[in-house]
Design a binder for these strands. Structure first.
Lengths: 266, 266
DNA sequence: GAAGAATAACACCGAATGCTGTTAAATGCA
DNA sequence: TGCATTTAACAGCATTCGGTGTTATTCTTC
């Protein structure tokens, strides 16, 4: 195992998260030595991670939060597979026409996509995800319809009956969606509230595009979200297992495999 | 007229706004000399003010935007009467109980109020105003229901049929609202979309509290929003014209006049 | 085409912010 | 009670960011 010394705060917290997920518990002294920082700094890291619901602080260290064994928190997810998400988002841009209405769901993949929509004129964007709204709200050329409902801090999005009702009262050309896992002909997600919203979104869009990076393929999560046959297109990156891709194609679902763009600098 | 030299950016932009509203036009060279800054800086100021819809840039200067002769833009309004708004918001806090549900409208007065809600536990807050959401969304003890609809950049809030429908489907204990002007037994606002939303909010709350600073009293705006008799309480600051206050009381509406808190430091 | 005006690009400065460690006080545990 | 852990408060440091000016280039207008 290589040295962790000199990692940035974000790196350190991600490594701590991995450690605690793997070993189910860590001690503060251990971590302080490992990263060559003061115990106070580790305390602060653990406080943050606890706040995010990733782990639970206990005397002398921290233990894993069972609920998060699969799906970790937003800020952590955002760091993962960014390169793949960029490539997938870029490819998805081809399916947006000026003047259309699109629905964007709450996921970091789609957020990457949203950031690329700034150049498209007269677009109507419908979303329940606060981060999307923050990115798009300043743009004059985008007509932003934001979905209301109960705000869920953990996902930074709104959900619930009110939200579903509102989704049912709008219509969009295309839905751009991601999910936690894809396997056995289904897309999965672990949170019931979110699943319900995503299902409503599927119903309200004429065309549905599912965007997932290779780490999601072959995985499962708690709840079936929708059969893949509901989607008109699945976009994945080129690191995906060809077998998995083939299985999806066997269902009669179109799959687009996008190559990763070479990263200019590390 | 005193020297403008050394003003901060915000002060400078407010003064430019006042100037352009008064003289209907200003020249860039003039302004650059007046404030002792480079023409480039004035350019940037005018760009911002234009973006906010306050004025229109023309070659060599800028002219007033007729639509904004009465109601100036959010960021400008926020700077005005802050002391009064603080006092009014503080007084309004007495009408919030833990566990209640409140509706907050889109106004800078109410935003000041929202910032004070952080200490109240188990509160449900319903709002269509993005700024309110930004202030409240991180707080665990607050249950945030955000209203959806068409996003209006100028007001940083959502409006429209979808929004009104959503308001009609919720119920709150108390509505905290402000308005652009109050006179002749009515509250006024100049924007139809906003008026419709505010009316829906009034219908959905058991108790309605109107919060306005003294500059709003005796003024009119384009559209009648609601008769003052719809409100259970009007809160104003102590700089208000006593005659105006008396007129409201004559309608049988309760009025609370709050003293300004002494400002500790300039 | 020339002069004035607007914009773009770059660099600078100061303020604000984020991250860390130290110390001291408070708390929890045996 | 005594020790270890945790927390709070403060200070230092580096980085970032906002606001500004300068210069060079492009655009208007006559």
């Amino acid at each position: 195992m290589t040295s962790f010394i000199g990692s940035s705060q974000a790196e350190r917290q991600n490594l701590i998260t991995e450690l605690v997920l793997k070993n189910t518990s860590v001690s503060i002294q251990e971590l302080a030595e490992m990263f060559q920082v003061s115990a106070m700094t580790i305390h602060r890291d653990l406080d943050e991670l606890e706040q995010q619901g990733i782990l639970r602080k206990v005397r002398g260290g921290a233990t894993a939060q069972r609920t998060y064994l699969f799906e970790s928190h937003l800020t952590y997810r955002m760091n993962a597979c960014q390169e793949e998400k960029e490539a997938i988002a870029q490819a998805a841009l081809a399916y947006v026409e000026p003047g259309e209405a699109v629905i964007l769901d709450d996921s970091t993949t789609i957020l990457t996509f949203a950031k690329k929509l700034v150049d498209i004129s007269h677009l109507t964007v419908i979303t329940n995800f606060f981060s999307n709204i923050e990115v798009l709200r300043g743009l004059r050329q985008i007509n932003l319809i934001w979905l209301g409902g109960d705000y869920l801090f953990r996902y930074n999005a709104v959900v619930g009956d009110l939200c579903e009702a509102m989704i049912r009262s709008v219509r969009a050309n295309t839905l751009f969606m991601s999910s936690s896992a894809v396997s056995q002909g289904y897309a999965f997600h672990q949170e019931e509230m979110i699943v319900r919203v995503k299902r409503a979104m599927i119903e309200s869009a004429s065309r549905r595009i599912l965007m997932v990076d290779h780490t999601k393929l072959g995985k499962q999560a708690l709840r079936q979200l929708a059969p893949l046959t509901m989607f008109d297109l699945v976009i994945v990156d080129s690191l995906s297992d060809p077998d998995q891709v083939e299985k999806i194609r066997d269902l009669g679902v179109k799959v687009e495999v996008v190559p990763l763009v070479k990263r200019g600098k590390v």
